[in-house]
Design a protein around this nucleic acid. Sequence first.
DNA 1: CCCAAAACAAGAGCACTGCTCTCGCAATGT
DNA 2: ACATTGCGAGAGCAGTGCTCTTGTTTTGGG
Lengths: 234, 234
Amino acid sequence: MPSTSRAQNRADQTRAIQETGRRHLAEVGPAALSLRAIAREVGMVSSAVYRYFPSRDDLLTALIVEAYDELGDAVEAADATVADPTDLAVRFRAIAHAIHGWARANPHEYALLYGSPVPGYAAPDTTVPSAARVTGAFLRLAEASERAGLALGAPTSPVAGGEHDALAGVRAALDPPVTDERTVRWLMAWSTVFGHISLELFGHMYRGILDYDAHFAHVTDQLAADLGLARHVG
Amino acid sequence: MPSTSRAQNRADQTRAIQETGRRHLAEVGPAALSLRAIAREVGMVSSAVYRYFPSRDDLLTALIVEAYDELGDAVEAADATVADPTDLAVRFRAIAHAIHGWARANPHEYALLYGSPVPGYAAPDTTVPSAARVTGAFLRLAEASERAGLALGAPTSPVAGGEHDALAGVRAALDPPVTDERTVRWLMAWSTVFGHISLELFGHMYRGILDYDAHFAHVTDQLAADLGLARHVG
DNA sequence: CCCAAAACAAGAGCACTGCTCTCGCAATGT
DNA sequence: ACATTGCGAGAGCAGTGCTCTTGTTTTGGG
């Protein structure tokens, strides 16, 4: 009759390793993540860690899924707390600011998800469902704006045949179907949001933009207007 | 009377190391760049490399500057070959496609410049001038569009006081001055272009967008129209 | 022309990494 | 009660960035 059962102990140890890994990740970044250092802190010898995570990459995968889910939680929570769900502009801003806020608070995790891929590491399909939650939030808003019949706020050129085919992948994920022009605008908004955050976090706006939050807020407002979610002011 | 003088030999060796490093960088990425492996290939013992580059980070800096300059060359060359320099839409597309093409051809180098910062490495000021060439191409186009008095193609909300202050850094780099609204639109275009490339290269568009080039072309056309460089079609 | 000074290549060595293998011990379930 | 399995510890391999010493070669001034 051990104080902790074998299964319980395994769960505890796995969690301890992952938590310590998460802390190290936030401190030194993904490339410098050391299995030995984690083992030391958990109080194990390095080889024992391999009983729980077959390789460093498997630990990395677990951390990636954890980060995607945390960001997904933040995004979905922000979306859910909007008082009037029919106000798509507010929901869009809430989502964008949730991503921005989480990225600022967890820069290394953001870099792990949306920065350079770790060399020699290919994210397995396990990560896809968690990763899809964030993009899913955008897609659902796009569907809602289509359903509401909102007109795009910025003039948008018609989509030609080749580009129509290129969008087949996203189109399959949209129900009800969204017009190509609206799809393109939403993809652009997606690129703008993540591009902005990446440029900001990776230091390319340093000394150019003095107040990141003020500027990001303006950009999201502008995007919401371009998408037809809100009227352009002025 | 040596066949190669000491100074000549030093220059040759430095170049050989940097070239080999560049090749390794393209193969394994920045984080996995090994000084020892480079030394082996050049035919030196690892400690000898330190006579030419005091540390791995210094070699990395040299490679970063080289990459920024190569991208800068590509961008400026693309801009210069536009037949009619007053056609800002064509120039914008040329620049955007030059960046996109270079990034596709040199994904690891792009990741080094615009992906996650290498942990523990801080880019010295040496890299700034080379890095500024790319953003400078955007800024110069923004100035030209202001000078030409082009109206923005997409409705743009007026910039409030806080946001005006936030833009002080970019404003200082613009001569002649550009209106805040135009500046914001150009910053958004900048974010969209790099965001798009990063999302594409780092695998986030996989299976969503089937033809990257077709889609990117449409996006840049759209951006050019939003910026007022070209008429919206349709 | 000669010789001190500087530059250099090579090697050993330190502390670290991911990962494998073997060894014993302890919990498990039949 | 015992064979099976899970697990921690340790040694070891091949690799890393970087430092220090040792001996050699090139250089430039007296």
